[in-house]
């Protein structure tokens, strides 16, 4: 049976001509063996396109399918679920810039990927302002606390400022007017709020703050880095806004009283 399975697997993956001899002992007539290859390709293509809807909308089904075929040929899928299939698709899009000539496409793909990651991330309790008030009330040093982002919070550093367009595409909103897109970086936060995935663009100060949090820097240092990144900005509301956005996990461990 092993030689038959290998022949079938090779046929599906598309490595060389069909090994007809391997089918002889099985009783199968491999005349329509292509149906299995087609079905496998169709399942993987469908999963990839559904996981990258903005990319598919931008370049159309036909071209997205062609990219899906390249992805299938280069990605040796082992997981038995197609939820989240296409983990490396943004990298593939970046590597095939010469074929599609859409330099901003990878930024859309990265946002689609972040949406999926946020959508299926583990559930987690949420830090609320009262938690911080309790720390202060207990006489602990708030600035020395280290906050952690919830597992569903994804920071996306984009090469192109596409978050606004991406959000419209995700909500099936028509983009009726021509839009000029200049290459400028944009930092986006994608996360689950009240069980729905939402996103927002970050200011330089917010980005510095979140980056510091991801690096496990204490809260006071993270806020100072936000001030440095946005010297004319108002960082006094930064922490309350972020807490209200439900992006932090509750504090654990002893407070530094």
């Amino acid at each position: 049976m092993k030689s038959y399975m290998k022949a079938m697997a090779d046929s599906i993956v598309g490595t060389g001509p069909l090994d007809v001899e391997a089918f002889e002992n099985t009783g199968f007539d491999p005349k329509f063996v292509r149906v299995y290859s087609n079905n496998s390709a169709s399942a993987l293509r469908g999963a990839l396109l559904s996981n990258y809807p903005s990319v598919t909308t931008l370049i159309g089904d036909e071209y997205a399918s062609a990219l899906a075929r390249i992805y299938r040929e280069t990605d040796r899928t082992t997981r038995r679920t197609l939820v989240g299939y296409g983990e490396r698709f943004p990298e593939l899009i970046g590597a095939h810039l010469d074929k599609h000539n859409l330099p901003y496409l990878q930024s859309f793909a990265r946002l689609d990927r972040a949406w999926t990651q946020a959508h299926i991330a583990p559930d987690s309790a949420t830090l609320v302002m009262q938690d911080l008030a309790n720390i202060v009330g207990a006489g602990a040093d708030l600035e020395s606390q280290t906050l952690s982002l919830k597992p569903d919070v994804k920071l996306v550093d984009l090469d192109w400022p596409v978050l606004g367009i991406w959000s419209k595409l995700r909500q099936n909103e028509a983009i009726s007017e021509a839009m000029e897109l200049n290459q400028n970086p944009e930092q986006a936060l994608v996360w689950r709020y009240q069980n729905e995935v939402i996103s927002r663009s970050l200011s330089a100060g917010e980005f510095a703050f979140i980056t510091a949090i991801l690096q496990d820097k204490p809260l006071g240092e993270a806020l100072n880095l936000a001030i440095v990144a946005l010297p004319d900005g108002d960082v006094t509301t930064l922490l309350p806004k972020m807490v209200e956005a439900e992006i932090f996990q509750p504090l654990t461990g002893d407070t530094d009283a």
Partner: peptide, 12 residues
């Protein structure tokens, strides 16, 4: 297999 995720609305 469509619910083999760690969390989120799908499981809810």
């Amino acid at each position: 297999e469509n619910y083999m995720v760690e969390g989120g609305p799908r499981l809810a």
